[in-house]
Amino acid sequence: MTAGISVDLGSATPPFEQIRAQIASLIALGTLAPGTRLPTVRSLAADLGIAPGTVARAYRELEQAGLIETRRRNGTVVAGTLGDANPPGVPAPESVAGAVTTAVEHYIAEGRKSGFDDAALLAILQTKLSQQDG
């Protein structure tokens, strides 16, 4: 599971927020389906080389947002079941994934047409994302 999650300790964004945002994105894109079991707090913390309290805070915020739930015997899982309807005003993961993927493909195509390499495109995206956080 950590293949999709990383923490940049040099970022201005706190590590718990990086984890929260990445897991929320994976859920929104449908990469993490309802019922998918997440790693334990200790396991993810060890894999990322951070304190368990950092992961626990990210999980707590995801749970408060209704994206995940902690079940005693089953651990922490993505909330909902495959048959659940989305809450009002929340688009289906497939439509979000499609729209985001289309936007990313357009961004890459335009950037390459303008002569930017992958590193430059990532730097621009990271700058814009950090501006959104503040």
Rank of each mutant, 00 (worst) to 15 (best):
I68H: 01
R112N: 01
A92R: 13
L62A: 13
V100W: 04
L44R: 09
A51T: 13
A45I: 01
S6K: 09
E61F: 01
R72L: 07
T70R: 03
P14K: 10
A46G: 08
T13L: 09
R37H: 06
S11Y: 11
G80S: 00
P39W: 03
R71E: 14
L67A: 07
V104Q: 06
I108L: 14
G49V: 04
P34V: 00
T54M: 03
A28E: 12
V96G: 01
A46R: 14
E17W: 03
T81M: 03
T13E: 14
T31M: 07
R73L: 08
G53L: 00
P15G: 03
T101D: 12
L121G: 07
A99Q: 02
G35M: 04
A65R: 06
R57M: 13
V7W: 02
H106D: 14
L32T: 01
L44H: 03
A51N: 10
L122Y: 14
L26Q: 14
P15N: 05
T101N: 13
G53H: 01
G53T: 02
L44T: 06
F16D: 10
L82I: 12
R42T: 15
F16I: 08
A21E: 07
H106T: 12
G10D: 07
A51Q: 12
E69D: 00
D118R: 05
K128G: 15
I50D: 04
T101S: 14
K128W: 10
R20M: 12
V90Y: 09
I5A: 00
T40Y: 05
P91Q: 01
G134C: 10
G134A: 15
G80F: 01
P87G: 04
N74V: 12
V104R: 08
V55A: 08
E94P: 01
G80E: 02
Q126Y: 10
E17A: 09
L62K: 15
E17P: 01
L62G: 12
V77L: 04
G66Q: 03
F16H: 12
L67R: 06
G35A: 04
K128N: 14
Y107M: 12
T76Q: 15
T13N: 10
L29K: 09
E94S: 05
L29C: 12
R112I: 05
L38K: 01
E63L: 01
A28F: 11
A28D: 14
T2S: 11
A46W: 11
T40W: 03
R57C: 09
M1Y: 00
G89I: 06
R71N: 06
L48W: 07
I68R: 04
S130E: 15
L62I: 15
A24N: 10
G98E: 15
P93Y: 07
G10K: 05
R71D: 10
A28Q: 13
R112C: 03
G4N: 13
L38Q: 00
R73P: 06
G10M: 07
A123N: 00
T40A: 09
L29T: 05
S25T: 15
G134L: 12
L121S: 05
V78E: 00
K113Q: 13
V41P: 14
V104H: 06
G98K: 15
N86E: 15
V96Q: 03
A97E: 02
L121H: 06
F116P: 05
P15T: 02
I108Y: 11
S6N: 07
R57P: 08
K113E: 15
R72M: 05
L129I: 12
S11H: 07
